[in-house]
């Protein structure tokens, strides 16, 4: 049982981090803070993928000539792509926040809502 909990510890932490990110997105009114929450959310998914690629006693997937065990390179590649896509969406989100600030003079969600009504 002890080994079982240790074996799934990474996944538990992934869920906890994901939920902290979601909680930040739900509860905070500030749009920049919401984007920080989204960042935490997506980083937890990166950790999930990289954890699945890890193999006990393995090394980084760079061929050195000696016969060793390598962790799977495929999740690493997928997450490299995801990191870059993540920063693109963050940049776009921040641009929208700046645009909203120009239009409404605030980046607080509730104040923008009031302004619209």
């Amino acid at each position: 049982m002890g080994i079982n909990i240790l074996g799934a510890f990474n996944y538990w932490v992934v869920v906890v981090l994901m939920m902290i990110g979601l909680y930040i997105v739900i509860t905070h009114n500030n749009l920049v803070k919401k984007l920080i929450g989204i960042n935490i959310f997506q980083t937890s998914i990166f950790i999930l993928f990289i954890s699945m690629g890890k193999i006990s006693g393995g090394t980084a997937p760079i061929i050195t000539g000696t016969n060793t065990v390598y962790s799977s390179p495929l999740p690493h590649v997928l997450i490299l792509t995801a990191i870059v896509v993540g920063i693109s969406t963050t940049a776009l989100g921040l641009a929208i926040v700046i645009r909203l600030y120009h239009a409404f003079g605030t980046v607080e969600d509730d104040e923008i809502q009031q302004e619209i009504e």
Binding site: I3, N4, L6, G7, A8, F9, N10, Y11, W12, V14, V15, S51, M52, G53, K54, I55, S56, G57, P61, V69, Y70, S72, P73, L74, P75
Partner: peptide
Amino acid sequence: IQDMPAFGDANTPVQTYLS
């Protein structure tokens, strides 16, 4: 995540399928 294979396991689809 209860169904996830244990961390570091060598016999998961991730390790056996394409890598």
